[in-house]
Design a protein around this nucleic acid. Structure first.
Lengths: 213, 213
DNA sequence: TCAATATGTGAGTTATTACTCATGTTTTGG
DNA sequence: CCAAAACATGAGTAATAACTCACATATTGA
């Protein structure tokens, strides 16, 4: 019928509230969600973004597409959740490093933060990279934005605590600097993390006008 | 999601010299190609990768899809050409900076190189970023790879000429460091290029163990 | 002038894939 | 034990977009 061609005009004029999918309540549901996330990571690393489609993810996870869409409103939400989890882990690592060196000198705290950042990326650098890229291209969820702010916040707090001038800009610069160096190094397969750490620290301390430790 | 629309990673691993299309011979054909590239840039910046499809590009360029496919064998080739052109421009800028400071001290040459890099990204930071990202996801054309090597080569040569140890690794690190800081700063809308330059130089000189100029 | 060649056209073909829904199965609370 | 709620299924639908092709127009060179 001709009118079906106009059905699109009727749908969803009002903005959708980013589809509240159900949360898993039973253990098997949680297992399904975990399987989906694990399969997603696997596919992202092995096939890249091109192989990453919901059918493939569901198949590899051993669940049906229908199940996938019970817990993720759309494909992006899977990526968003992986990014969220990754950010959350980094934040935890940084906070731990901060706490463990509360009374130490600036260089020492920064070294701990850099080490935590490297360790965080090291495990699965290809997945880390893929997720970082995706994160840059996606509108962040509210929680994602909060986590990003909190990550920057740790650095900012440390710098201010040690009376660094322009802590605001410095934290942005240092984060970008570290990310750039670490990503590039891991991407080209670098193995020696201590060496990488030392090089990053030279740049960081140089930026701040401090001498090497 | 942008990545599903790119053939980049999976197709023709083993084959196809990715250029079986005709080169423009008449002026109007060159105009067509230019229009396509310009439209592509516009769409990439305004709509991102999601809006970047051949139909949209052709429409905005004011040509037909058929014409587009006369000069570009596939969608990726458009991006590849933009990346190639961008790399080529950067290389030219760096070589000019190098030549203009042949007999100067290391700090001075580096400052010129950093300035050239900033100037290069400054014009359209969003396009720069989009292309950088795309380049990371695409297999480089032969010429693209050569350009990348040449860009690194300039830095490498400068470092070696001034007897920097580990010039190989240092050039990789410094390039990544600069890219990271500059991209981030321009994307968040920073305006003061002299200030940015000074901050980048602090990191660069610190990395090399040199004092500020 | 007039073929040969270069360039331009855009509706149509085709493959892909995000996402739905009618229906079936399992778990839970009372 | 039994309904209701949670969970799972996967063939099917519909939208999208890469790319083709048969044909039209413009330019060139002799």
């Amino acid at each position: 019928m001709f009118w079906t061609r106009f059905a699109m005009l009727l749908k969803d004029v009002t903005q959708a509230p980013v589809n509240p999918r159900k949360k898993p309540r039973q253990a098997r549901a949680q297992a399904t969600v975990d399987a989906i996330l694990q399969a997603s990571a696997h596919i992202l690393v092995r096939q890249g973004f091109d192989g990453f489609n919901t059918n493939a993810v569901a198949e590899r996870a051993g669940v049906s597409v229908g199940s996938l869409y019970q817990y993720f409103p759309n494909k992006d939400a899977i990526i968003a959740e992986m990014v969220r989890a990754k950010r959350s882990r980094l934040l935890t690592g940084l906070q731990a490093a901060e706490a463990a060196h509360e009374d130490a000198g600036l260089s020492e705290v920064l070294a701990a933060l850099v080490a935590a950042t490297i360790a965080h990326q090291e495990g699965w650098p290809q997945l880390s990279q893929a997720l970082d890229r995706a994160a840059a291209l996606m509108p962040l969820s509210e929680e994602g934005a909060e986590l990003t702010a909190a990550i920057l916040g740790v650095l900012h707090r440390v710098l201010r605590h040690h009376d660094v001038a322009d802590a605001e800009v410095a934290s942005l610069d240092l984060l970008a600097l570290c990310r750039g160096m670490i990503d590039a190094a891991l991407l080209r397969g670098e193995q020696d993390m201590d060496l990488l750490q030392a090089r990053v620290m030279r740049a960081v301390l140089g930026y701040l006008g401090l001498r090497a430790m």
